[in-house]
């Protein structure tokens, strides 16, 4: 009978159903334990921040084309701020004001370095016109770059209160333009200087002697170490300019084309390099300007007219003078008015 068959079926399945129902009931607490808990695996800002290493950032994915926008939080910005506002003013202040103080003390103690034997009246060519052009091209760019750069670091504190926000911002905008554009002739000058003067700036044995004797800087009325075309001090300036200039150019290049380094961490790094080297560079150039102008009698002529006095040359570059005399490019000693060299 169909009915009894179904009854039989039910009788058979009844315990099974009951068992299933029971299973369901007992399974409930277990199901609750493994229920959806979005918090278990969700990224936590706290954990991400704590896991960050120095200079790291919390980065994800963005659907806009600008990949840099994928940086959600970069705490390193605060370190950069600290560098800009707390450390850099000290680095720059000590380097620049410190150098000015040293030079002032040096001028007071040592006085102007004179040509010991007086001017001879005879001159010889020290820097040809192309060399002088290159020097002044680089130097004039450097001065504008230095002043406009210092304006970025110190202008807000020192100049803004004097001129007011509008005038200062307008001036700073022009300074920024000048800084961006004059970077190129500066780099050109740097490259030419390297090519025309490298052969005279290779360090040699004479330089050790020169350094040992302090370059005659502290021996008043005295003895000068014989030097070739450039003495160790001048070679030092050459290499400071070349190495400092290359560092400034490379770092500046990245800042000028902010899309080159690609991310904010690299840009922060290059600004720090650019700023620190700049402060040291400016300090070194202050010493260079000092000794080439008020610090030493007869020195400015080398880059001014290009013609230096024979006695000045003999006192500072004895070997070079002899070489030039041998080549017939300098007046001989006998025609010189004043007394024997050294």
């Amino acid at each position: 009978m169909p009915g009894s068959l179904s009854n039989l079926k039910f009788a058979v399945f009844k315990p099974l159903l009951a068992a299933l129902a029971l299973l369901f009931v007992f399974a409930q607490p277990a199901a609750a334990q493994i229920s959806f808990k979005p918090t278990a695996e969700a990224v936590q800002e706290d954990k991400l921040l704590n896991a960050l290493k120095e200079g790291d950032k919390i980065t994800g994915r963005v659907s806009i084309p600008d990949g840099n926008a994928a940086n959600l939080i970069q705490p390193a910005g605060r370190d950069w701020r600290d560098f800009q506002r707390s450390k850099l003013p000290w680095i720059g202040g000590i380097a620049i004001l410190g150098m000015l103080a040293v030079l002032a003390i040096f001028l007071m103690v040592r006085g102007r370095i004179r040509v010991e034997n007086g001017f001879s009246g005879k001159t010889m060519l020290r820097f040809a016109s192309f060399e002088r052009f290159t020097h002044w091209l680089t130097a004039s760019c450097f001065i504008v770059l230095a002043l406009s750069g210092l304006n970025v670091s110190f202008g807000r504190t020192l100049i803004l209160p004097l001129f007011g926000a509008d005038a200062f911002a307008a001036m700073s905008a022009w300074a920024k333009l000048a800084h961006n554009y004059l970077a190129f002739p500066f780099m050109l000058g740097l490259a030419i200087m390297f090519l025309i003067w490298i052969k005279d700036n290779i360090p040699g044995k004479l330089d050790i002697e020169w350094i040992k004797q302090g370059g005659g800087l502290f021996s008043k009325g005295g003895h000068h170490t014989p030097a070739k075309r450039f003495n160790a001090g001048q070679k030092g300036i050459f290499w400071i300019v070349i190495i400092g200039g290359v560092l400034m150019s490379v770092s500046g290049w990245f800042l000028l084309f902010p899309y080159l380094p690609g991310n904010v961490t690299a840009l922060q790094f290059w600004t720090v390099i650019h700023a620190v080297i700049a402060m040291l560079f400016i300090a070194a150039m202050l010493a260079h300007i000092y000794i080439g102008s008020i610090g030493m009698e007869g020195a400015f002529d080398a880059m001014g007219t290009g013609e230096v006095d024979l006695n000045w040359a003999k006192e500072h570059h004895a070997i070079w003078v002899k070489e030039q005399q041998a080549k017939g490019e300098a007046p001989s000693d006998s025609t010189a008015r004043a007394v024997p060299a050294e």
Partner: peptide, 28 residues
């Protein structure tokens, strides 16, 4: 009116908020 577009705020900002139109020379 005062901003000179130097990019310093972008370096310092922890959230990458400052944006710059590429209107200057060399894409500055």
């Amino acid at each position: 009116d005062l901003c000179i577009g130097c990019g310093y705020c972008f370096y310092a900002c922890p959230f990458g908020a400052p944006q710059y139109p590429k209107v200057g020379n060399f894409g500055s």
